[in-house]
Design a protein around this nucleic acid. Structure first.
Length: 250
DNA sequence: AAAAACATCAACCGCGCAATT
DNA sequence: AAATTGCGCGGTTGATGTTTT
C-alpha cells in the first residue's frame, strides 16, 4: 500500500539510509555524551512528541473555517486517510485532524442520529454544512476587506465561487488553502466516496439538480444562515434535525 | 461548593509494510 | 529466502480541563 510511501516529501527524500559513516557515529556519540541517554522514552514516543508538538511551525487549536472546509472535502474523497489529509493543511498534524473529525463531526452525526458514513449525513455535510462554511468564509473575507489588504483576496473569493461551474469549483475559493482542493479534485487517481456526478453547486442546475434544488429550499427556510463563530451550534443542529426529518418524509 | 457529566486532545497500541540483516 | 527490525498509520484510550447539575 501507499501507507508508508505517503511520507515521500522532500525532507524525507534526503534521509540517509544504509551503513553509518564515521562522521555520523561521531555526531551521535557526541550528542549522547553531552545529553546522555536520558529519556525513559521509546523512539516511537519521541517521534510522536516531535511531530505533533515540538516540531517548528506545528499549529494547534483554532482550526479555521477554511481548514474545516478543507478537511470535510478531503475526507469525502479519501476517508480516514488522516496523514494524507494533513499534507494539505500546513502545520496541522494527522492527529489533530483526526481529533477534529471525532470530536466535532462524529459528534454531530450522533446528535443527528446518523451514521457518520451514511449517505444521509455525508449529503448533509456536503450540501448544507460545506456551503454554509463557504458563505461564512466569504462573509469574513468581505467584512475584513474593508480595511487594508483584503480587497484583492475578496475579489478572488467571490469571482471563484461564482465563476466556476465544474464540480467542486465552488471550493476553489481561498488561493492559499483551498486551491489544494481544486487541484486534488482534478486528480483522476483520487478516489471519492461520493459518486463522481455530484457537485457542490449552490445555485441549482448542473448534474445534482435534486440536491441543489433542496439546498435552495433549505436556504430559504434557513433565513440568514448559521450565526455565531461556531457552525456546530444547538440552533444549527436543530435546524439540521428538522431538515433530515423532512427529508425522510419525501 | 462539590460532584457528575461532557469535551478536548496528547499519547499509546497494534498492525502492516518496507528495509535490513 | 527467511527472519528480524524499524517506521508510519489509523484506531483508541485516558488525563485534563470545562460545563452542567
Amino acid at each position: 500500500m501507499e501507507r508508508s510511501l505517503s511520507g515521500s516529501s522532500e525532507e524525507e527524500m534526503s534521509i540517509t539510509k544504509g551503513p553509518w559513516t564515521e562522521e555520523e557515529d561521531s555526531v551521535l556519540f557526541n550528542y549522547i555524551t553531552v545529553h546522555g541517554e536520558g529519556l525513559k522514552r521509546t523512539g516511537k514516543s519521541c517521534r510522536l512528541r516531535w511531530l505533533n508538538y515540538l516540531r517548528p511551525n506545528v499549529r494547534r487549536g483554532n482550526i479555521t473555517l477554511e481548514e474545516q472546509l478543507l478537511i470535510l472535502d478531503l475526507h469525502s474523497r479519501w476517508g480516514n486517510r488522516w496523514s494524507k489529509i494533513a499534507e494539505h493543511l500546513p502545520g496541522r498534524t494527522d492527529n489533530e485532524i483526526k481529533n477534529y473529525w471525532r470530536t466535532r463531526v462524529v459528534k454531530q452525526a450522533k446528535q443527528l442520529k446518523c451514521e457518520v458514513n451514511s449517505k444521509q449525513f455525508r449529503d448533509t455535510l456536503r450540501f448544507v454544512w460545506m456551503p454554509r462554511m463557504l458563505e461564512r468564509i466569504q462573509a469574513q473575507a468581505s467584512s475584513s476587506s474593508s480595511s487594508s489588504s483584503g480587497q484583492a483576496h475578496q475579489t478572488t473569493l467571490i469571482s471563484n465561487a461564482q465563476a466556476h461551474s465544474d464540480p467542486c469549483g465552488v471550493m476553489t475559493t481561498n488561493p492559499s488553502l483551498l486551491s489544494e482542493v481544486s487541484s486534488s479534485a482534478l486528480d483522476a487517481h483520487a478516489p471519492s466516496l461520493y459518486d463522481s456526478s455530484a457537485s457542490y453547486n449552490l445555485m441549482g442546475g448542473g448534474s445534482s439538480s435534486s440536491y441543489s434544488a433542496e439546498y435552495c429550499y433549505y436556504s430559504d427556510i434557513a433565513g440568514n444562515g448559521f450565526g455565531g463563530s461556531d457552525l456546530w451550534t444547538d440552533e444549527n443542529i436543530c435546524f439540521l434535525q428538522q431538515l433530515l426529518a423532512d427529508h425522510d418524509l419525501s
